[in-house]
Amino acid sequence: MAISSKPGSSRPIDGVPTRLRSEKFIRFLCFACAAISILTTIGIVLVLSTEAMAFFVKSKVTPKEFFLGTDWSPTFNDPKFGIVPLVCGTAMITIGACVVAVPIGLLTAIFLSEYAHPTVRKIAKPVLELLAGIPTVVYGYIALVYLTPGLRTFIKDLQVFNALSGSIVVGIMILPLVSSLCEDAISAVPKGLREGGYGLGSTKLEVTGKIVLPSALSGIMAAVILAMSRAVGETMAVTLAAGQTPNVTADYRQSIQTMTSYIVQISKGDTPTGSIPFLTIFAVGATLFLITMGLNIVAIRIVRKYRKVYA
């Protein structure tokens, strides 16, 4: 079979069937590799759901208590399993990161696609990619060692671990994602629309603000949602910068805990496998998975919708 896949080596009489059989085999092999992705999805759903179920059964916590409870202390003697503080922490980081990344990312995208000289574009794009390539733990180090002490000279009652510097570094991390997705959305706007605007005597700002941005709005929204989903799943930087205190608060000066950093905290300690605190990481992981999945699906829907308009 191996010989027959070399060109010219297949004998005319019996070569064809062997060739076809090996062709089919290779095709099946490739299909099997592609199918691994489906198995991965099934694996994730199965693992998260069975272990989350095991958590609910073993701890006798009702889903209502879990999703609406505002007290999270799974390792205490009198454990409480209300996930609201972790979701609240995650939401604070996500919102904070978007406040940093969306305006800068969008303006960068507008600059690169509407204003920038091709040479400037050529330099700026790899630099942004470089920002995206820096490992997240490096951002965590920077937040903890440089950003927080720096911010504390301005904000006196900022805690050592705080949601503010966590949000800022996550914002910097998702900035390249926001700007490149926004740029894609903006460049998908047909040139004719812009030219119509210029023909009527508009300035670049007017064309951008009144024609390009409204036309690219759905793409920009999808970009923001995808960036949010990335911020929700961000782990190491938040764990280092924002601390380990489950907290229902809106105060960015305080230490909080996100869903991801809770999973890290339990994984790092020596929690016996199968115990209730160990099972909580799967329940939290399942919640995290559902939230990011939901955001991704919404983003994909929006993208599909707007593709239809111009394609």
Partner: peptide, 22 residues
């Protein structure tokens, strides 16, 4: 499969950790 792959690309890395652990 194609949609599934783009969805998988958006799953947080720590969720893969939970899958690997189990």
């Amino acid at each position: 499969i194609q949609i599934n792959i783009s969805n998988l690309a958006g799953v947080p890395s720590i969720v893969y950790g939970l899958l690997g652990l189990e």
